[in-house]
Structures are given as C-alpha cells and as structure tokens.
C-alpha cells in the first residue's frame, strides 16, 4: 500500500486552494447537482472547459491526473459499450423516440445517430463529473472539508467524523504495514519472490482481520482523548484551519447562489415541459 493520496493533506498556495472551505464545498456540491441534472451538451461543455482551467491553475501532477483520466474513461467506455450491446436503441428512448440509422453493420447490428449521440453525451457527462471531482479534491484539504461542512450548517459531529477519518487513514496504512511486519517477523511468508498469488491472497487475509480489530480497538483511546479536550461540549465549535472569508470567496459564493437559482429553474422547466435531451440532429 502506498501512502500517496490524490487529496493533499497540507494546504497549497494556488488561487483555488486559498479559498475558504465552505466556499469550495458549496460550489462543488452545486456543480455536482448541475452535472447530474443536465444531459445537455450545451451545459456540460462550458463546465468541462472550466474544470480543465481550474485544474491547470492547481498545478497538478499531470501524469497522475492523465492516468486516472484514462482509467475512468476506459471504465465508462466499457459501460456504454455494454449499454449499446444490450439495447441498440438506448438513445431513442431518451431522445423523444426518433430513430435514424447511421450505419447498418449486418442484419442485426446497427448504430443510430440517437444512440451514438446519447452515449457520447453520457460519456462526456461522466468525464465532466470526474473532472470537477478532481478539481475539488485537489483544491481542498481534509481539514477544510470538515470546516466547510460546518460552514454549511452540517452538524459538527458529522464533520468531525470526516476529519477524524482522514486523520486515521494514514494510521490504517501504518497499522497494515506494522501488522504485516509483525506477522512476517514471526514467520509469515509474504514475500512476492517466495509465494504464488493464491497463497499470498490467503496470507493477506491473515493481516486483514487483525487490521479491522486493531482499528476498532483504537476507538476507546481516541474517544477518551477527544472527551478529555472537551469535544462535544458545546452546540458549535470553531476551526483553526479555517481561512478568512475574502472578497474572492464572496465572488465565488455569489456564483454559487446564481447556480442554485439556475439549477432549480432548469429542473422545474424540464419537468413542466417534458423536455428531453438536447439533440441538434433532430429531423
């Protein structure tokens, strides 16, 4: 197990990273809703472009991002191929029922413009969703995530769950390593050079169960440490890692509010008019 996560544990210095946690989380959530509600390329495309700009501003490790991008692209691609294989007219049901055959491969297999369009938009939507998640994850730290949740009036006990979880993830890796080390030091053979895959899988299970138990054995001690420093005392708490709200934050919060209004109106409009997907090739 490696300890390199995609999420940063220490705050960076770029524009987006410097935003207040609440701003980031609020914006992320509404943009998520925006992506989910829209099957409309006109809505998705600008977001997709913006997310790349956002990503670039974070000066990320492109090798990692592109690797993940490729992986997600592939996973979703397999998915839409399956969709196609199961129902060649899947697009029509989303596009008001029209059916325009583009290519007829043989007597059974064909491809319609509607299906091609629908599947492409879906793939695009999934990639947009991936991109904004990426920007969000790279711009926030676990601590800000917790303070952001509080800022959104989520009870602080829930946000503490999140920050505690992130606090103990490295500890779980450590536990895994030490349990493995401890087991190996007592003679459990785990070396790749010594064992075949199946044997290793079985031996790995011998680490897993102590890992789960060790983690749960910690609960008492950690809870004591929290209680002793007054955790859960008041109705609210403050956050040391919280950045002050700057004019930059106000700008982004404004955008968030506009987006909320837009999303609500859009959904109402969609439902009232039974408006399907946007499809430029409608005949």
């Amino acid at each position: 197990m490696s300890r390199r996560f995609v999420i940063n544990l220490v705050q960076g210095e770029t524009y987006l990273q410097k935003l207040n946690g609440t701003t980031k989380l609020g914006l992320f959530l509404i943009v998520m809703v925006y992506t989910m509600m829209s099957f409309d390329l006109r809505l998705l495309l600008p977001l997709f472009i913006l997310s790349w700009i956002g990503l670039a501003s974070l000066k990320p490790n492109y090798k990692l991002i592109l690797g993940l991008f490729g992986f997600i692209f592939f996973m979703n691609f397999v998915n839409i191929i399956l969709y196609y294989a199961v129902n060649q007219d899947v697009g029509s049901s989303y596009l008001n029922g029209t059916r325009t055959v583009l290519i007829q491969f043989n007597s059974y297999w064909y491809l319609t413009i509607e299906t091609l369009w629908y599947l492409s938009v879906r793939q695009f939507k999934m990639m947009t969703s991936f991109m904004i998640s990426m920007v969000f994850i790279l711009s926030i730290t676990p601590g800000e995530l917790a303070s952001g949740m509080s800022g959104l009036k989520i009870p602080y006990k829930i946000s503490t769950i999140t920050s505690l979880a992130f606090r103990y993830i490295p500890e779980i890796f450590n536990d895994y390593e030490t349990i493995k080390m401890s087991m190996q030091a007592r003679g459990l053979e785990l070396d790749k050079r010594r064992l075949n895959v199946f044997k290793r899988l079985k031996e790995n299970l011998m680490i897993l169960i102590p890992l789960i138990f060790t983690s749960f054995d910690r609960i008492g001690n950690i809870a004591n440490a929290l209680d002793l420093r007054g955790f859960g005392q008041g109705k609210s708490r403050t956050y040391y890692c919280e950045d002050p709200v700057t004019s930059r934050d106000k700008l982004f919060r404004g955008i968030t509010i506009l987006l909320i209004i837009f999303c609500i109106s859009f959904m109402v409009y969609q439902n009232v008019n039974h408006f399907g997907m946007w499809f430029p090739f409608k005949i």
Binding site: G143, R167, E171, L226, C241
Partner: peptide, 12 residues
Amino acid sequence: LQDSDAQFVALS
C-alpha cells in the same frame, strides 16, 4: 495520556 498516538486527533 500515556498513549501519545491516540492523543493526536487532528490533521496537523
């Protein structure tokens, strides 16, 4: 506490 690992509850 005696167990300083457990006492460290925050992220930094």
